[in-house]
Design a protein around this nucleic acid. Sequence first.
DNA 1: CCCATTTATTGACCCAAGTCAATGACTTTG
DNA 2: CAAAGTCATTGACTTGGGTCAATAAATGGG
Lengths: 191, 191
Amino acid sequence: MNIDKIVAKISQFIEVKPEEFDTFMQFASVKQLKKNEIWEHEGDLGKLMGFVNNGILRQFYLKEGNEFTDQFYCEGDFVGNFVSYVKQKPSRSAIQALTDTELIVVSFDNVQKMYDLMPSMDRFGRLFAEQRLVEFSDRITSFLLDPPEERYRQLIEEKPNLLVDIPQYYIAQYLGIRPESLSRIRKRNKM
Amino acid sequence: MNIDKIVAKISQFIEVKPEEFDTFMQFASVKQLKKNEIWEHEGDLGKLMGFVNNGILRQFYLKEGNEFTDQFYCEGDFVGNFVSYVKQKPSRSAIQALTDTELIVVSFDNVQKMYDLMPSMDRFGRLFAEQRLVEFSDRITSFLLDPPEERYRQLIEEKPNLLVDIPQYYIAQYLGIRPESLSRIRKRNKM
DNA sequence: CCCATTTATTGACCCAAGTCAATGACTTTG
DNA sequence: CAAAGTCATTGACTTGGGTCAATAAATGGG
């Protein structure tokens, strides 16, 4: 199990002692996903948290036969049905690998155990949640302030690899528009 | 200083010992705001956190002469330029009281001190941030899945008092549409 | 390398929100 | 109470995204 990336990630937030990582790794396992494989299904209760060692995933909703992509998860991100877990309600969304993907997986129950065992974990959880909060807040603000065109520009600037690694219609779903409209936006602006 | 509501709020997340609340209150002060008064200005670095004892506030952005309301804060909510504080960058948004308002105010710096002094505070911060995260996530999902009409219906169901206490055009700003469009939506659906 | 499948583009048309301007309703206050 | 100001509604028109269908381009498996 290659833990370099997850060590680096957690160390961005708190100092971690080597023996704490040993504890962490006792709870962890590796999961390989093939392209297009569904990892967490709609209707599941969020039970697992993953760290993306490599690959891209998306979280999506179905409504009236259409798919809506809510989030992308890329290398270095934590992925999971957090909302379902926090609410303790079955998830309305599913999580799917868009490329071959490797995850380091820990159950939320074991994450809870770590919160109780390791004093620094609550702080990590807080700082991590605060950072996600800022990302979510920025996305909401962008829905209010920026037209789809501008949201597309920003997304591609932030995550240029999306454009090469996954079909455009997932990007359209994420922006809240139809693939045809994204195609026209790209044409209008020669992107 | 009436601390009943804030005690109740924090107790939803963690158990607090009376002496811990004493510590908390040493850091806190009360701030009265008049209707339409700006509490935090655009360009300020987020320095203060408030707890809404009563009243309604909004956080808003200016873009090309238009105002965009990003968040409402009602009785029992924590209000502040969290994003600016976390990023340590001047805020692009302002916070304004929409009715006469009473806040219990603590500086973010003192909140940090409490994180270090009181072991349970990191957990409170984590749980609180997790809950906000779920709210934000639901709002993003709603931007993707639901037309403005449906978002309006849900907002009014959740916070019916908004409709009586503040002008409709703030609600339109929050939904991401123009006041004229909200007026037409209400007419179409006899709301 | 070819064929089947998937993905992206384009066209024609529709509709809901945006824009601008005018009017109506309601509030505040001198 | 009258006048000013604020807020909501309505009308006429524009615009950009949605929808459906056809075609083109890219991809992947045999």
